[in-house]
């Protein structure tokens, strides 16, 4: 015997000290910030209070992007394409939507962040990454 039981659960997440500024600047200024680690000096994006790689605290805001490099991508039928992107000036990969993936992207392609028209202070303030056309690469 099988029972199906759906439930609706409400959640609420605090972005915290560092990510709050990341989202605030993204929302209000349309700029993407990373944080530099005091230990390994890498720039983490999205910004976090401490380094996901070596554990040390981060202490310096660094603007990254909006251009970047496509590290990997996949396409989910019916849901669109997703990309792992390393933004220029950053050292970590960010997961987001890959826009207009029908252009057959290749790993290593140049991409650029596209901002959403209306922004509310969340990761969807970035609409996603779009491939930068050949003509734009000079």
């Amino acid at each position: 015997m099988i029972r199906r039981l759906p439930i609706r659960m409400p959640f609420h997440y605090a972005a915290g000290a560092s990510a709050s500024r990341f989202f605030e600047v993204l929302r209000d200024q349309g700029r993407i910030l990373g944080r530099r680690c005091t230990g390994c000096r890498r720039v983490l994006c999205p910004a976090t209070a401490f380094c996901a790689l070596c554990g040390e605290p981060t202490d310096e805001w660094v603007e990254v992007g909006p251009g970047g490099e496509l590290l990997s991508w996949t396409e989910v039928p019916g849901r669109g394409a997703y990309a792992l992107v390393r933004l220029d000036g950053g050292d970590t990969a960010m997961l987001h939507r890959l826009l207009a993936a029908d252009a057959a992207p290749r790993i290593g392609d140049r991409v650029r962040a596209r901002l959403a028209d209306t922004r509310a202070g969340g990761i969807l303030d970035l609409e996603g990454f779009e491939l930068v056309g050949e003509e734009e690469v000079t």
Partner: peptide, 11 residues
């Protein structure tokens, strides 16, 4: 504690 994320709270 909206001033910190879960990992920041743990830290």
């Amino acid at each position: 504690r909206d001033d910190v994320s879960q990992p920041e709270l743990v830290r």
